[in-house]
Amino acid sequence: MRPWFLLAVSALLLGGCAHPWNTVNVAPGTPREQVIAQAGPPVAIVALPGGGQRLQYSLQPLGQYAFMVDVDPAGRVVGSRQVLTELEFQRIEPDRWTLQDVLREFGPPARVDGVSSFHGQVLTYRWRDRANADMFYWVYVDPQGVVRRAHPGMEQRNDSDPRTR
């Protein structure tokens, strides 16, 4: 059998599997159960103000995408979107947002660290900017759970192979 044929068949089979990418552009009105059947179980389900739920499909810690599918109280999709973007991160309001707001809007971070210059947690999200560059977005949360600052930064890789630079 030819290798290209096996590759094509494998791609078709994998295309039908449950995966978070299947939440991209899911049609409003789609039943919640259909989303889960297409995308698999979410990493988290978060209650939304006003009654619905948010199904969170995050590819963190290694991936650079997180998809949120909002469902109304009747169990129908209201909308879906990829949230690890510059425009979405710009919505964060230091001194107003809380840790719960960040986790509701962006899902679990890739990492949670601390730094000596800040008393609290630093949440790290991995994402790609408009130029497709590997990026970090850091959200600093104080011990009371309030966001104090947030900003992007370049993700630097230490590759020893000069061909990958």
Rank of each mutant, 00 (worst) to 15 (best):
A8Y: 02
V9K: 01
S10F: 05
A11M: 11
A11H: 01
L13H: 03
G15K: 04
G15W: 07
G16A: 11
C17D: 00
H19D: 10
H19T: 04
W21A: 04
N22G: 02
V24Y: 12
N25E: 13
N25R: 11
V26N: 02
V26C: 06
P28H: 06
T30H: 00
T30V: 02
R32V: 04
E33L: 05
Q34Y: 07
V35H: 05
I36Y: 07
A37N: 00
Q38D: 04
A39I: 01
P41T: 01
P41L: 06
P42S: 08
V43E: 10
I45E: 12
V46W: 01
V46D: 04
A47V: 12
A47M: 12
L48G: 01
L48W: 03
G50K: 05
G51A: 13
Q53F: 00
R54E: 10
R54V: 12
L55N: 08
L55T: 05
Q56Y: 02
S58C: 08
S58Y: 08
Q60Y: 09
Q60G: 10
Q60C: 11
L62M: 15
Q64R: 09
A66E: 04
F67G: 07
F67C: 06
V69F: 00
D70E: 15
V71M: 00
P73D: 07
G75Y: 09
V77D: 11
V77E: 03
V77G: 14
V78F: 03
G79K: 15
R81H: 08
Q82M: 14
V83R: 02
L84D: 02
T85D: 04
T85L: 11
E86F: 08
E88Q: 14
Q90G: 08
E93S: 12
E93M: 12
R96D: 07
W97F: 13
W97N: 09
W97M: 05
W97D: 12
Q100N: 14
D101M: 06
D101I: 06
D101F: 09
L103F: 13
L103H: 11
R104N: 11
E105W: 07
F106Y: 14
G107R: 05
P109N: 10
A110D: 14
R111H: 12
V112S: 15
G114L: 06
V115C: 11
S116G: 02
S117P: 03
F118G: 08
F118Y: 15
V122W: 13
V122C: 14
L123K: 14
T124C: 13
